[in-house]
C-alpha cells in the first residue's frame, strides 16, 4: 500500500491541505475530496476534455493530472466562474446560455474553462483560433456550431470597453 502524501492546493482561491493517495487523480480529488462536482469526467484517459481545469492559469485535463502534482499550485474550476454571492454568471457562462451553446451540459464546464484561457490570452480570436483552442473538447450534443457562437459572443462582451 502506498503511503499518503500531504498536499497543499489552492482551489478557486481557497487553501486546502489534505492527505491523499499518490494515485488519486486531480479530477477525483476535486470532485470527491473537495466536493467540486462541476469538473465532469467523461473518459478518464485524456481525450474528451470534460474535466478541463486551469492549473496556474493554464488549461489542463484533471484526469491526466495526479492530485499530488497539484501540490503547491493554484487550480481553478468551473465553480470559480460565477460570482460567489450574487450568483451572477460570468460573461462566458452567460454567453453559453444566450447562444444556446449547450444541451446536456456535461462537457460544458470543460469548454468554458478552455474558453477562459483562450480569451485571457487572446481577447479577439478568429474563428480558426477558437476552433484550434476547442479542438481538444468533445461535445456529443450540440455539433459545436452554437459553441462557436457562444465563444464569439463571450469575446465580444468581454472586450475592454464593451457595454456591460
Amino acid at each position: 500500500m502506498s503511503s499518503k502524501q500531504r498536499i497543499e492546493v489552492r482551489v478557486n482561491g481557497i487553501r486546502h491541505v489534505r492527505e491523499v493517495e499518490p494515485r488519486l487523480t486531480l479530477a477525483d480529488f476535486l470532485r470527491h475530496d473537495l466536493g467540486l462536482g462541476g469538473t465532469h469526467v467523461g473518459c478518464e484517459h485524456g481525450i474528451c476534455g470534460a474535466c478541463t481545469v486551469l492549473i496556474d492559469d493554464r488549461s489542463a485535463r484533471a484526469c491526466l493530472t495526479l492530485a499530488v502534482q497539484a501540490d503547491g499550485h493554484e487550480v481553478a474550476t468551473v465553480e470559480s466562474l460565477r460570482a460567489p454571492e450574487s450568483g451572477a454568471l460570468h460573461p462566458i457562462q452567460q454567453a453559453f446560455v444566450d447562444a444556446h451553446g449547450l444541451q446536456c451540459g456535461f462537457c460544458t464546464p470543460g469548454f468554458m474553462m478552455t474558453t477562459l484561457e483562450l480569451l485571457r490570452g487572446n481577447p479577439d480570436p478568429t474563428e480558426e483560433q477558437i476552433k484550434e483552442a476547442l479542438g481538444g473538447n468533445l461535445c456529443r450534443c450540440t455539433g459545436y456550431q452554437s459553441i462557436l457562437e457562444s465563444v464569439k459572443l463571450a469575446a465580444q462582451r468581454m472586450k475592454p470597453g464593451a457595454p456591460a
Partner: peptide, 12 residues
C-alpha cells in the same frame, strides 16, 4: 433561454 442552463453552466 433554457431554464436548465444557469445550473448547468454553473456546474451544480
Amino acid at each position: 433561454n433554457r431554464v436548465e442552463d444557469p445550473a448547468l453552466v454553473s456546474g451544480t
